[in-house]
Nucleic acid binder design. Structure first.
Lengths: 337, 337
DNA sequence: TTGTAGGCGTTATCAA
DNA sequence: TTGATAACGCCTACAA
């Protein structure tokens, strides 16, 4: 392994001068700079990150905690984040959790072990934050969920208004003339996101002079194809005359639509479906899935910008809401009475 | 920050004894062990990775280089790899490349900067390996592509026989009575994988007394929904009476099927489609996509096992072929003449 | 079984 | 503008 000492010896300068050149300091003579750069190049020298980070006690890494491994929206966001971080000299430390796991516990662990300079949470449950977020002392951004009520100085958020978005989805079904509406979503006890969207559903029902009969209308599932498939099967079994379903993620919706087809039910002819997230998948599926689109690019870019703002510019925590958008696909049919 | 010295002082033992306990050595008295563990627990002490790795000069990290960010198969494999690595004390360093980029160049960079103890290539082009792989000196496994002909002592491979698999896909279309068969795949100049599958197609054509008319039958695209969509449009335009298409990935196939529908063509009624990869997506799509399934779990588990075999057991490079399987979906229709 | 001391490769402080 | 040197936190001979 070639170290800074080798470069020093070979170039005839001292390690400190080499270090200065390496770190683009300006208190170095052009001669020294040129000579040292030549030697560095010739030896293919790259500084040892461990030594550097040990000394500087910062790791130049950013932790990303993803809740839900099959969550396509998060996959899309991660992809965008990667593209942005690639251009900087930071590295990402990814950590994937099950959708109901405790992300703050994981964050604490990550901070201790990897010393990231900041954290991005893709999905998160305020309960966990309330309980133990005090232990995390680096700047963080909660993405897709709101954190304004939490009031931590080092926790920003870039979120979609899940209540309004959930309401929007169900409103669309009412608008199409549906009365018998089912909901397929996450575990309401464990998933804050699902709970918010569900609140939106309740608002919509209420606005239409109705109330949600939990037992019959709501079925829970995980955010994966398989689970959506099974969940939809359970839903139609307990609610046989359902004509429309709001499914809380596109991935689940695809599983759900497949389940319906396998039972001989067509979407939208027999049952209408509205998804959530607005991933690319939804628009390429057949039928195109009507969905509530979260702007994943904006979510991604703002969260990274805000994190860097907090880290480098020492800015305060901010809380932003990113607008969603209803995308009408081919999966909803107007119900004539 | 709490360091090993703090633990030493607090427990009344020396740093070396603490270090021994931390590293589960057995040359330590039960008393010392117990006391030290108690203090470690009380202070929430976690060793500083940078210091540890600097000293040991190994990073306990494994590099994963993924060629093609929209490649669902790779996403599935990565997921499996993550599950396996999670249980060990290694960390993954992910690196995503464009599908036509030079992965070996990236590998060289990664080795210099992060000093991984081993590398996993998800997809790769033998050309790049021939040109510069000599610069990579850690154990590597090329996943999904063969590397047996390359003959590097530190490069194993766990692959699917792309030639046979490509042939299998086209054979299925011939078997269904199709004559006018198109192919939608990657850039044959840049994508080795595509070239292999294409060779398989040629074999199949030949076996059926036919030859591929490149100009008319082959269209290139990237392995994404969007690109598959556009590619299929170009293909039907230059080959209007095509009745069946082999698409070299499920993701592309979904884009392609969507393109056909948007032109008013149904799958399989008007045009049959066979995909490739056998991702979950294919079986939930509508229609279910007939596809050549690569066993991603096996691909993932074997590649990790082989890498650890090389790293820890100093085993020699091995080259394995993982069997593929044709999955008949709903996207192929028998052609009656 | 335990402790002391040296060093991993780098940066930063201080003096020259 | 440059160089010697002391850290950073940990591991590991080697000594006791």
């Amino acid at each position: 392994m070639v170290t800074i000492k080798d470069i020093a010896r070979e170039s005839g300068y001292s390690v400190s001068t080499v270090s200065r050149v390496l770190n683009r300091r300006n208190d170095v003579s052009p001669d020294a700079k040129k000579k040292i750069e030549e030697v560095v190049e010739r030896f293919h020298f790259t500084p040892n990150n461990n030594a550097k980070q040990l000394k500087q006690n910062n790791s130049k890494s950013i932790g990303v905690i993803v809740k839900g491994i099959s969550n396509m929206l998060f996959a899309n966001i991660v992809e965008e984040i990667q593209k942005m971080i690639e251009k900087t000299d930071y590295t990402l430390v990814m950590s994937y959790l099950d959708e109901d796991d405790d992300e703050v516990e994981q964050a604490t662990l990550l901070c201790r072990e990897r010393k990231p300079i900041g954290l991005l949470f893709l999905g998160g449950n305020p309960e966990f934050f309330k309980k133990e977020f005090a232990g995390v002392d680096v700047p963080c951004v909660l993405v897709t969920n709101r954190a304004d009520k939490l009031g931590y100085a080092n926790l920003s958020s870039v979120a979609t208004d899940d209540i309004a978005a959930g309401r929007c989805a169900v409103d669309a079904l009412f608008a199409a003339g549906h009365e018998k509406i089912g909901i397929l979503g996450g575990n309401l006890e464990k998933s804050y996101t699902s709970r918010q969207r569900f609140l939106g559903c309740q608002e919509s029902f209420l606005a239409h002079g109705r109330e949600i009969e939990m037992e019959k209308c709501y079925e829970k599932a995980h955010f994966s194809f398989e689970s959506g498939y099974r969940g939809m099967n359970r839903l139609v079994e307990k609610f046989p005359d359902v004509t429309a379903v709001f499914v809380m993620s596109d991935v689940m919706a695809i599983g759900a639509i497949r389940a319906l087809r396998d039972r001989g039910l067509l979407v939208p002819e027999n049952i209408s479906v509205v998804g959530f997230d607005g991933t690319t998948l939804a628009e390429y599926y057949n039928p195109k899935i009507a969905t509530v689109k979260q702007q994943y690019q904006t979510l991604a870019s703002r969260s990274v910008e805000i994190l860097f703002g907090q880290i480098e510019l020492k800015q305060d925590a901010v809380h932003e809401l990113v607008p969603f958008e209803f995308v009408s696909g081919e999966s909803v049919r107007a119900q004539e009475e």
